[in-house]
Nucleic acid binder design. Sequence first.
DNA 1: CGCGACGTTGATTTGCCTCAACGATTGTGG
DNA 2: CCACAATCGTTGAGGCAAATCAACGTCGCG
Lengths: 203, 203
Amino acid sequence: MFSSIRAYIQTCTQLSEDEFLFFERRLKHKKIPKKTFLLQQGEVCNFEGFIIKGCIKTYFIDNNGFEVILTFATENWWVSDMMSFSEQKPSKMFIGTLEDTELLLLTLPEKEAALQKIPALERMFRLMLQRHVASYQERIFAGIALSAEQRYDLFLQKYPHLPLRIPQHLIASYLGISPEFLSRLRKRKLYKNTLSSPKSSIS
Amino acid sequence: MFSSIRAYIQTCTQLSEDEFLFFERRLKHKKIPKKTFLLQQGEVCNFEGFIIKGCIKTYFIDNNGFEVILTFATENWWVSDMMSFSEQKPSKMFIGTLEDTELLLLTLPEKEAALQKIPALERMFRLMLQRHVASYQERIFAGIALSAEQRYDLFLQKYPHLPLRIPQHLIASYLGISPEFLSRLRKRKLYKNTLSSPKSSIS
DNA sequence: CGCGACGTTGATTTGCCTCAACGATTGTGG
DNA sequence: CCACAATCGTTGAGGCAAATCAACGTCGCG
């Protein structure tokens, strides 16, 4: 149950067996069915969650009532509204499951207790924040400098497994384009690929 | 010289006089003329800088050689490529002054020394990171959900003083639109305003 | 003075959206 | 287990927001 988060922590920092155990005891294991909210607009986010299995979206609702996807999160990602969580302020976002999902949840008091006892964890959480920052920066750049097709290519390259798990219209929302246009993009690419790499056909 | 950063720190956390002094001694005061690079693509960012006076842009260069503005930073903001800085990896971005600028610079060893001695500073740096994350999230949302005009309005509302200091074409780049189109937007708004609030004319 | 940086304006083009209609698939209650 | 609805992807026609290209006026500055 904790194997994946142990592996994750070890990519960030070194912990003793006692420290691992102490941290793991702060976590609450939870299974959540598909299409369930973990957080809704206006609520205070009371968790940081490490995903063991499953898939989650975080998003805003725009003035026309449409979802604007901020992130997709799958295995070995942390998910939360970190601003709402650490400042205990009402959130503007929604967090919901796209699949049956298994999580390790950390509350704010438990997190603070863990950081108190295990300062080395500061590094893990800082790296987590930095990864988010890096991915947001890349996204802003892409949104300004790249065409819809280039953004889609980048998405496929960075998250090759996601299109198999996530409905297309949500990917369109993530990319900032309409579902119809993503459909046309895909059609165009299919045509290009069958022209440029005929060998890949199974026949 | 340190009054502004003292005020900033006090909005985040409580420090004793000794701690203030210790931290301030870690900082290096520097004056930098207009149009100077603090960081160029490929270099490792060796500072986090607190702006006492002046104005700075951070940006990427896109495939066509155009600047894509990531952030503007002015008085009382921290500026750095935080990823490059804390991981000591080559940066993909540029950082440059738009005006003669006065900074307090912190190197990585000095930062670590300060955090070692004054754990309360962790909170300040975490809040700084979180402010960046929050502003990036809002920017991604705006880029997807809002029209160019709405994004410009939001920009004016959040940073009412910047348009007076920063060339228009850089604001266009920040907003993700062409300089020509921003010019047209402004013209449109001017027309609207003279219609809706005729009193403001000086005659 | 002359040059480069900057902003404006017009004409034209285009990337992407909107609306509407239509299959295919999935899920669900009777 | 079927029927019906809901969800999802595709396709076509038409429209609009914003880009591009080109020309020009202005300003600050070496």
